[in-house]
Simulated scan of single mutants.
Amino acid sequence: MGRATDRRTVVRIDVDGDGSVRRRPDTLSAEEPFEIRVGPAGPGRRAPLAVTMRTPGDDLDLALGFLFTEGVIRSADDVLTAQLCAGTDQPNTYNVVDVVLAADVPPPVTDPSRNFYTTSSCGVCGKASIDAIRTRSVHPVADDPMRVSPRVLAGLPDRLRERQRAFERTGGLHAAAIFDADGELLAIREDVGRHNAVDKVIGWALRAGRVPLAGHLLMVSGRASFELTQKAWMAGLPLLAAVSAPSTLAVDLAEEAGMTLVGFLRGTSMNVYTGADRITHPSPVPAA
């Protein structure tokens, strides 16, 4: 199995200190390709559906979360088996997962012109059109009565950072976590890719039978992009919070979904871009 981190030798240069130059070991975030193969039961090889660059670890969660948020499966029951395979790498790195779908689940389109190739920084780069990425959720998050206090939200970034074990060693991993409305942490996943971290934590929820995640929120360590908002909506999450900025498409999609979108969640302040009524506060929200 691959490791989430690895060691490399670097040349350390101290400009403002004593001007020293020395070699030292450094811990890096691992990044390896991961291929998801999908198909029906029976003999033969499943067809490749997606390749993503990811940090090894929680790979089955990543595969199931990806298939769910892309609309290939609707529940964990749609998957008969999901098994890591050795692939062709030497030594074996188990960078391939073979997913067998239930008999009543239609196999996904594997036309190369609409492939799902992704990088660690972009979850939708391989899609052939904008229409292909607007996967619709079956969960009506607009009707979710969840309420959360600003004080609970303000404490989430520190709680997230405290549990980012690989980030503490590398400084190079994103994190995604699911919290309840009281700020209790249910699960956290790390990855070199923002979208992979979200797929991993949603895959965990799917395998745990917790989807839809009504009454819960998703916290991410970076910015809130369109694809992360889409994934949150697919999982039935009524609130997405990020320590950095959202994009215009993320705000538009959150508005369309009836989702609460919080950005720049740092210290004791935050920006609420959509769904401000879910944030409890003694002072009234000023009129637009």
Rank of each mutant, 00 (worst) to 15 (best):
Leu185Phe: 03
Ser244Phe: 07
Asp16Arg: 10
Gly193Ala: 13
Arg8Ser: 10
Arg7Glu: 08
Asp59Thr: 10
Pro43Val: 03
Ala47Tyr: 00
Ala235Ser: 11
Arg159Val: 06
Arg165His: 13
Thr52Leu: 15
Arg134Phe: 04
Gly44Ala: 03
Ser283Trp: 08
Arg3Thr: 07
Val38Met: 13
His139Gln: 08
Asp144Tyr: 12
Leu156Gln: 13
Asp111Cys: 14
Pro33Asp: 10
Ala154Ile: 00
Phe66Val: 11
Arg24Leu: 14
Val96Cys: 08
Ala166Gln: 00
Gln164Leu: 15
Leu261Glu: 14
Gly258Trp: 04
Ala166Trp: 02
Val96Tyr: 00
Thr69Glu: 14
Thr260His: 09
Val124Trp: 14
Trp204Leu: 07
Val79Leu: 08
Gly17Glu: 05
Gly171Glu: 03
Gly87Trp: 00
Asp104Ser: 14
Glu190Tyr: 03
Gly183Lys: 01
Met1Leu: 02
His195Arg: 15
Val198Pro: 04
Ala30Asp: 06
Pro282Asp: 10
Gly222Gln: 08
Thr5Lys: 06
Ala288Tyr: 08
Ser20Pro: 06
Met1Gly: 08
Ser137Gln: 07
Pro282Lys: 05
Phe264Pro: 03
Val109Tyr: 00
Arg12His: 12
Arg169Ser: 09
Ile13Asn: 08
Asp16Lys: 11
Arg12Tyr: 13
Ala30Met: 06
Ser269Leu: 04
Val124Met: 15
Ser149Pro: 04
Ala254Trp: 01
Ser75Asp: 13
Gly209Met: 14
Leu156Lys: 09
